[in-house]
């Protein structure tokens, strides 16, 4: 016979296992981005591609703000505040989309070089491209969680999908925390 307490215990066990799997995935993905970061310094050394500084700062601010709203949404569902949860998710989705528009729609189009032109151009498009792909998949993930949240599938006790989406989203933010200075701030502009 299964009691309520047993079910709760099983759920906690499953959550702990899922959480470990999630972090192992994050770790494996971190190696990919770590490799790209090392490639950037191997290829460019103390130079960097010529980019629009203010745009870089703006997209960074957008991504950091999105992490704040994602954290707020996760905190809200953990405390039973469904309205704040849904609002936070929606704002995060909008900010994530704005980030992609900023990088792919503006920075890529306005960059004074094309993808295969030189090492600086290649590494810039590879790093931002891989990262933008992760942001896009993150936005899709968030949209699914938002839809499920609207349908009332999450409770303060059971909301691991929200936590997984949040951890993935913050990871994408952590990657940009390193990519932003590596691409925009470190070194002199490559001539």
């Amino acid at each position: 016979m299964t009691t309520q307490a047993d079910t709760g215990h099983n759920y906690r066990f499953k959550t702990a296992t899922n959480r470990l799997g999630l972090w192992l995935f994050i770790l494996s993905d971190a190696f990919l981005f770590g490799g790209l970061l090392v490639s950037r310094f191997y290829l460019l050394g103390k130079t960097r591609p010529e980019l629009i500084q203010l745009l870089g700062l703006a997209v960074t601010a957008i991504l950091l703000a999105s992490s704040f709203f994602m954290n707020r949404a996760e905190t809200a569902i953990a405390h039973g505040d469904r309205k704040t949860f849904l609002n936070g998710m929606l704002i995060t989705i909008v900010l994530g989309s704005l980030f992609v528009i900023g990088v792919v729609g503006f920075e890529w189009q306005l960059a004074p070089f094309s993808a295969g032109e030189n090492a600086a151009a290649s590494i810039f498009f590879t790093m931002t491209g891989f990262h933008a792909f992760h942001v896009i998949t993150g936005v899709i993930f968030l949209a699914i969680v938002y839809r499920n949240g609207r349908r009332g599938l999450y409770t303060p006790e059971r909301h691991f999908p929200v936590e997984a989406a949040a951890v993935y989203w913050h990871f994408v933010d952590v990657v940009w925390v390193f990519f932003y200075p590596a691409l925009y701030l470190m070194g002199t502009v490559a001539g």
């Binding site: 906690r12 959550t15 702990a16 959480r19 470990l20 972090w23 992490s67 704040f68 994602m70 954290n71 953990a78 303060p156 006790e157 059971r158 909301h159 691991f160 936590e163 949040a166 951890v167 913050h170 990871f171 933010d173 952590v174 925390v177």
Partner: peptide, 18 residues
């Protein structure tokens, strides 16, 4: 900061969701 306060890295060593 992000890993500690937003990703709640320490949760990995805890038990539940609460």
């Amino acid at each position: 900061l992000i890993m500690r306060d937003y990703m709640h890295f320490s949760r990995l060593f805890g038990e539940g969701e609460e």
